[in-house]
Simulated scan of single mutants.
Amino acid sequence: MTSTLPGKVRPEESPYDVTSDLGRLRLARAGLLACMQFPTIAIALALVSGGNGFVAPNTGVSRKTALNQSLRNLIINEKPRSVSSGSTPPAAIPEIPLPPAPATPSESTLSKDEVRSLFELWNQALATGDSRIVASRYIEKPCLLPTVSDVPRTDYDSVKDYFDSFLLKEPQGTILEGEIYTGDGWAVDAGIYEFTMGATGDKVKARYSFNYVQENGIWKIQHHHSSVMPEEIAMGKPITEDEVRGLFSLWNNALATLDPKKVADRYSKTGVLLPTVSDTPRTDYASIEDYFTNFLKLKPQGEILESHVTIGKNWCEDVGIYEFSMGATGKKVKGRYTFVY
Rank of each mutant, 00 (worst) to 15 (best):
K261H: 15
W122N: 03
G185F: 01
N252I: 14
E107T: 06
D155N: 14
T200C: 09
P260Y: 08
L110N: 04
P105G: 06
C316L: 06
N253E: 13
A256W: 04
F54G: 04
A127V: 07
A256V: 05
Y138N: 00
N77Q: 08
A92C: 06
D113S: 08
V213S: 01
I239T: 12
V48L: 15
T276P: 02
A30V: 10
A44R: 10
E107A: 02
A101L: 13
G320V: 07
L25E: 15
V263T: 06
F248S: 02
T40S: 13
I192R: 04
A256L: 14
E114M: 07
L145H: 10
I96Q: 07
N216D: 15
N216C: 13
I93S: 06
P94V: 08
E241K: 15
Q301F: 10
E140Q: 07
T109R: 00
L247K: 14
V213Y: 12
Y212L: 03
T147K: 11
I96V: 11
Y267R: 00
E120P: 00
I41C: 09
R29Y: 13
N52K: 09
G53Y: 11
T200P: 02
K313F: 13
S209G: 03
K220T: 04
L255R: 07
E107D: 02
Y291D: 02
S82G: 06
L247H: 14
T240N: 00
G335L: 15
Q37Y: 11
A44G: 10
T196F: 08
Y337V: 03
Q214Y: 04
N52Q: 10
N252V: 12
N314M: 09
S307E: 09
